[in-house]
């Protein structure tokens, strides 16, 4: 098998190498790929969409339909992870561990035993519990708001600088994942429940598809944001810019929620009680 793989891979590489001799040279501004469609994007993109960041303009407007399905791909992955991994009926754990927060005493409660009320004095902990670490905990907690602010900046400033819904959404999702890593999954799911992530993932995409659909209802083609000009009381070019912002917000919402959802399912193997 290995030898077969090696020969096959070498053959594939030889084909690539052979074809690379006919490639246009790297970085040639006159290569066909850099002329035909792309020249017009660069020249007219700003005029037609009022967005200086051409990647954002092409992503969310010229090829906005692609991007809608790009967000759908990630939604599909989120739902797929949930669908494949989530386990509801599981055997009740034999022991439950509770830690008295002030003293650090750990209670082991046999199955059927009386459990402490979920109060401020006791917290339920994992089997593989890592001792409470003040530095990690506080440092992560301190970073989270700033990271989230940055995520919002990346989403909303995507018109003028590198960024946009996907990038900002991932950063936002990463902040919640950071909390889950530095504390534990149980406390994080209390802050950001599974249900919320499922809702937000659909709702974010709903904003995108709904914006597109609204354009259709207003009499233009699907995703033609210039139709929103009447609603937003701006000229059609500006309406495109606003439409792009709207869908980027939707994408940001969906992506952050889905990243968190996927993390929850993968990290706990669908049990949602303890990390791996």
């Amino acid at each position: 098998m290995k030898r077969f793989a090696f020969i096959g891979v070498l053959l594939f590489g030889a084909v690539l190498l052979y074809s690379s001799f006919s490639f246009p040279p790297l970085g040639d501004p006159h290569a066909p790929a850099n002329r035909h469609v792309s020249d017009d994007y660069i020249r007219d993109g700003m005029k037609e969409t009022a967005v200086p960041n051409l990647v954002t303009a092409v992503l969310a407007d010229y090829r906005g339909y692609d991007t809608m399905f790009e967000a759908t791909v990630i939604l599909a992955a989120g739902i797929a992870c949930f669908f494949l991994l989530r386990r509801y009926r599981r055997k009740p754990a034999q022991h439950r561990l509770y830690r008295h927060i002030d003293t650090g005493v750990i209670l082991i409660i046999e199955q059927g035993g009386k459990e402490p009320v979920d109060s401020k004095e006791f917290e339920r902990i994992d089997y593989h519990w890592v001792p409470f670490d003040l530095v990690v905990n506080k440092a992560a907690g301190l970073m989270v708001p700033f990271l989230q602010l940055f995520a919002l900046y990346v989403i909303f400033h995507g018109h003028h600088s590198p960024g946009g819904g996907f990038q900002g959404g991932v950063i936002f999702g990463a902040t919640v994942i950071l909390l889950a890593i530095s504390r534990d999954l149980r406390s994080t799911t209390r802050l950001f429940p599974e249900r919320t992530s499922a809702f937000l993932s659909s709702a974010g995409l709903f904003i995108y598809a709904g914006t597109g659909f609204a354009c259709l209802l207003l009499g233009s083609n699907l995703l033609d944001y210039s139709a929103l000009a009447r609603l937003l009381a701006v000229d059609p070019v500006m309406a495109r810019s606003h439409g792009i912002l709207l869908v980027e917000i939707g994408v940001g919402m969906a992506v952050s929620a889905i990243m968190i959802w996927i993390y929850y399912n993968l990290a706990s193997a669908g049990r949602y009680d303890e990390g791996l």
């Binding site: 790929a33 850099n34 469609v37 792309s38 994007y41 660069i42 993109g45 051409l54 990647v55 303009a57 092409v58 992503l59 090829r63 692609d66 991007t67 790009e70 967000a71 791909v73 990630i74 996907f166």
Partner: peptide
């Protein structure tokens, strides 16, 4: 050229 960057943003997500 902005177009391949857009395409690859999609491919990264995929």
């Amino acid at each position: 050229n902005p177009l391949p960057h857009v395409l690859m943003l999609t491919a990264i997500v995929v």
